[in-house]
Design a protein around this nucleic acid. Sequence first.
DNA 1: TATTGTTATACTCTATAACTATA
DNA 2: TATAGTTATAGAGTATAACAATA
Lengths: 177, 177
Amino acid sequence: MSEPSVANTLRRPRAPRKTASTDPVSPSVDTPEPSSGLDTSYLETLLGYNARRAALAVITVFLRRMEPFGLRPVDFSVLTLIAHNPGVTSRQLCAELDILPPNLVGMIKSLDKRGLIVRKPHPSDRRAQGLHLSAEGKRLQKQAQTTATRLEHDVSHALTPAELETLNTLLRKVYLR
Amino acid sequence: MSEPSVANTLRRPRAPRKTASTDPVSPSVDTPEPSSGLDTSYLETLLGYNARRAALAVITVFLRRMEPFGLRPVDFSVLTLIAHNPGVTSRQLCAELDILPPNLVGMIKSLDKRGLIVRKPHPSDRRAQGLHLSAEGKRLQKQAQTTATRLEHDVSHALTPAELETLNTLLRKVYLR
DNA sequence: TATTGTTATACTCTATAACTATA
DNA sequence: TATAGTTATAGAGTATAACAATA
């Protein structure tokens, strides 16, 4: 059976709330205007629920904008980590992105076939291989990073720049450490 | 081929940062102390990355705490929506939680077999069926909701109550509307 | 003995097509 | 003609076991 997949437990919701619930446990919050008929007020008090939905909202846009580059979020993360950490090993990428080694093999193979990365022998460990971006990989990653940075502002149009910075800071406080 | 799965594009990362990158596009941020060797400073400026990691951090704890109840996040969401919206239809749950109808069938069937929900004929539409919690379902959902609410405070131990409220508000601004 | 990269493979999650019975 | 619930199934994503080469 194995441990349940964490990533798979994330789902993508669609629409929002209604009124408040008569629940003794749920924290009372301002429940805004209805929209899709159902009362989702309690779920909207949960950090996990809100963070998941926000992440999925951003990722939906990410998928659309990165389509021209043929990059999924995980591909972008891998390329970006290689770009900023030339010579990084597969094992390091796995640890950082929480990908299991067997599942990274295909991604690396694919990026290699596309000519975006090159694998060089590791200087001190002949088992490992250092990962580097090719010239084309560097160009693609730079374009993709620019796209990601622009996307950052677009998806947070409802927030002021200060609010966005606060949001990112608070999110890092949740998952770092 | 079909549209790429949004939920599946979420991955669970593990450890954090290092130094800053010499990238002309990446917004400059305070890059804190290293920890796992790799430079992840740019990724940590991205809302999607931070929201995903925060969501996964919360969900990891959620999975552990909900194990005694035999509930995955999606099961908890379904039970909670039924609890707060008695008589809700499968179709409504699908729209709200962005689950495709064929994929909800098994979950509903499972909750039914466990005796947690009951399906009653819909008062005005004989195609549909209204979903309700059984007595046992109500007890389990209440316990689970209490657990979720407690978890809310535990996972945000690095935040003040005011910060947590701010965080939830900002997250809702990202995905609502 | 442990670790890197790898293959093979099983399990879970997500998506599409198509059916039935009602509307 | 369209919709609610359902079945069957295909495709992505995620997991474990085991192996060869090297540490």
